[in-house]
Computed example of a mutant assay.
Amino acid sequence: MSPSRAQATTALALLLLATTACTAGEHASTPVSHSLPVSRQARQLRLPLDAYASTVAENHVVEDAQDILMRRCMNGRGMEWKALPPVDAQDTEPPNLRRYGADEAAAVLYGYHPSPDPPSVVRRNRAWDERESLPAEVQRTAYGPSGKGGCRKTAQHQLVGDTAPPDYRAFNQLTGTALETSRRAPEVRDALRRWHTCMAKSGFDYPDPFAAAGSERWETAEPTAAERATAREDVACQKSAKLVTVWAAAETRIQRRLIQQNSGRLHEAKVRKDRWLAAARRVLNRDGG
């Protein structure tokens, strides 16, 4: 994995680990839709701590700006540098997708399996893969012998000077704490009991939506009819119990308290993130369109 991709993947993995429930493994041949199936509720769900982490789209902005500067550096050394293809706006996952369990739009089609990547995401991932097979000389020029130098280091310095990369440790810690704390809130426990009762009426015995989504039964190459039926009932019971609405309100209250208690750490992290993003947008506006 190229260093720049490794950095982006690590940050995103930490973010997703803190904000999403477990789902079943990859599936092989389900047809790819033209955009991600995501409900309006998931698209609109925002939590206070979101301001302190980068969205997938914001990560792409930084990557694209660095690409412009990388290409300039590589061209100056007599080498080509192919820019990453863009990802369509509707193809990026919202930050809190599946935070409280399965999402209705994807559950109907894929059960608890992850939705297939849309074409624009597939193209960008393929471009990352192609970079990992570049000739050794090109890789050294791009990343240096250590993987932290070369044109990548030059581009990063041109982008933000000595500003360190965004640090999401505070966000990841606090968003995980908020999720677990809100889960124990009386109103959320009541909503989970309503969800459990609703599921039990249809013959399902799961303690919560995370247990339903993480069942070993769904570790199949493709979503089964039983999986889809379970997921459909799951999201129907979420609606009946008003689970997402209740849980999001409880967690919003808890996150606001955590932000007040950790304002210093979070402010520093946000300043760094905003500097990178603003610098990237300046490069794109000036040189990339």
Rank of each mutant, 00 (worst) to 15 (best):
E132K: 07
E132Q: 07
E132L: 05
S133L: 11
S133W: 09
L134Q: 12
P135I: 06
P135Q: 00
P135N: 01
A136E: 03
A136N: 00
A136W: 00
E137I: 01
E137C: 00
V138D: 07
V138M: 08
V138C: 05
Q139Y: 04
R140C: 03
R140S: 03
A142Q: 05
A142L: 13
A142G: 04
G144T: 06
S146G: 08
S146Q: 07
S146W: 00
S146D: 14
G147N: 08
G147V: 08
K148H: 13
K148P: 04
G149W: 01
G149D: 08
G150H: 03
G150M: 08
C151N: 06
C151K: 04
R152N: 12
T154M: 08
A155T: 01
Q156S: 14
H157P: 10
H157Y: 12
H157F: 11
Q158L: 11
Q158A: 06
L159Y: 05
V160W: 01
V160H: 01
V160M: 05
T163V: 15
T163C: 05
T163L: 09
A164N: 10
A164D: 14
A164P: 13
P165G: 10
P165A: 14
P165S: 11
R169K: 13
A170F: 08
A170I: 10
F171I: 13
F171T: 14
F171S: 14
F171W: 15
L174W: 06
L174E: 06
L174G: 10
L174N: 11
L174Y: 09
T175L: 03
T175A: 13
T175K: 03
A178E: 06
A178Y: 07
L179W: 07
L179Q: 09
L179F: 13
E180A: 13
E180M: 15
E180F: 12
